[in-house]
Design a binder for these strands. Structure first.
Lengths: 247, 247
DNA sequence: CCAAAAGTGTTTCCTCTACACCCATGA
DNA sequence: TCATGGGTGTAGAGGAAACACTTTTGG
């Protein structure tokens, strides 16, 4: 595509990248996917997976491509949505680089491997990033904060929670998503009633999963609904920090 | 800021613009601010106000600057939030132009005037744009659709509705915002109770506004809250199309 | 039989809707 | 005193929180 000679060629000196906040639940914790940078700047530092948008590429395909290249995550079922764009003039030492941030949600997957521009990819608990224990390159800390906020909000009024689950899942697995992402404790019985009443949220498969102990759990698949009505309101839950389900 | 000589100079050939969906309520209709383009491409066509981000400028300041330049809208009180970024490769005939779209909400203001790159600025009913009656340049129709959707959603669980009102306003003015933006009819009495119960949504000024007829209405100012709890759920309102408040 | 996890029923409370009713002003 | 719009009271429906209780498996 040749550029029409325009009156403002001086503006065509920027680069646009994508960066992806991939969230999952592992070991009963909310975790984010990070890569160790293999190139300058910030070589060796941890960062979000991402990279430059190609000259003839749209942003979302670029996000999927970078995920596939750097982290071997490319299965089609991955939930991906645009978060927001970060355009502070000095956010990248290479020059004027504007980044379009994406949020992806994945079920608990095998540990991803490194790719071309990244030495290694690994899951990191979100709290360790938000608390500053783990430092990120560029302005990626702010992007993670924004992405986690978005995910927490969207659990309320969309069916996003199912994106954290595998294709079939139990009621308890779905409830753990809410508990872990929000950091609250939820009554299993009222939760069961609420989500089964929400139209098109879940479809029973008819199958059951037998565990080591206890009654077998019914299995569900995500339904066609994308918004949740009535919503699951966070404000309605007790300020209890967490269920002491462990130990 | 000189660019550090990086390994990927071939990516630095893009331009980034901002485009702003400014919404207001005029004549009991939701309206959007459009400008008549004064330069190519699409010279003479209607478009959203916007323009190129400067070499050392962040996106949000650019949006405010373009609004001031093209539409003489620059008062500080304007609500402005980022919507999303549109990056389709062929969206602009001048070359690879990525745009960061913003949503602004304004109270009913005096009709704005044109500025440098725009011959004239004017309010247009949203329905005339969404229905295709009024054609827009570039992919701006899609941006308006996205912005209107966002505004409708945010009325539910944020205090965004007050951004449509002047600094002090009556309960009825606030209710008209919901009715016009959602296209529904709302019981005035229940609405009154609901918003006065929501913490920090409204602050009574103690003043009253005397109208031509009827009991004087109490005046309110927006409170410090930015989120609304409990939310105003759209699904709860009757499927009635509109209040027949006019003749 | 016991432990553990899944799922149901029931009570109580609280919010929301619908609507009757009262209040304050101008003409 | 009438018309017009602002604001309160209240009864009934529906949803949610709390929690006792039953079901189904493994040991």
């Amino acid at each position: 595509m040749a550029a029409v000679s325009g009156p403002q060629p001086q503006f065509f000196g920027m680069a646009v990248t994508v960066d992806v906040v991939v969230l999952t639940i592992r070991d009963d914790e909310l975790q984010v996917l990070l890569v160790e940078r293999g190139v300058e700047p910030f070589r060796g530092a941890l960062a979000l997976p991402g990279g430059f948008i190609g000259p003839d590429e749209d942003a979302e395909p670029a996000a999927r491509r970078e995920l596939a290249e750097e982290t071997a995550l490319d299965r089609g079922g991955l939930y991906l949505e645009q978060l927001r764009t970060f355009a502070a003039p000095a956010r990248d030492p290479r020059g004027r680089v504007v980044t379009v941030a994406y949020l992806a949600i994945a079920p608990d997957l095998p540990v991803p491997v490194g790719g071309s521009d990244a030495r290694a990819a690994r899951w990191q608990p979100v709290w360790s990033v938000l608390s500053g224990h783990v430092k990120l390159a560029f302005d990626h800390l702010g992007i993670v904060e924004y992405g986690v906020d978005r995910a927490r909000s969207k659990l309320e009024y969309t069916t996003l929670a199912t994106a954290f689950c595998p294709e079939v899942f139990t009621m308890t697995e779905l409830r753990r998503v809410y508990e872990v992402v929000w950091g609250v404790s939820i009554d299993a019985r009222n939760f069961h009633r609420k989500v089964t009443n929400a139209a098109d949220f879940l479809e029973p498969t008819g199958e059951r999963r037998v565990l080591e102990t206890g009654r077998p759990a019914a299995l569900y698949r995500r339904g066609p609904a994308r918004t949740l009505f009535p919503p699951m309101l966070r404000g309605a839950f007790p300020p209890v920090p967490l269920a002491d389900s462990g130990a």
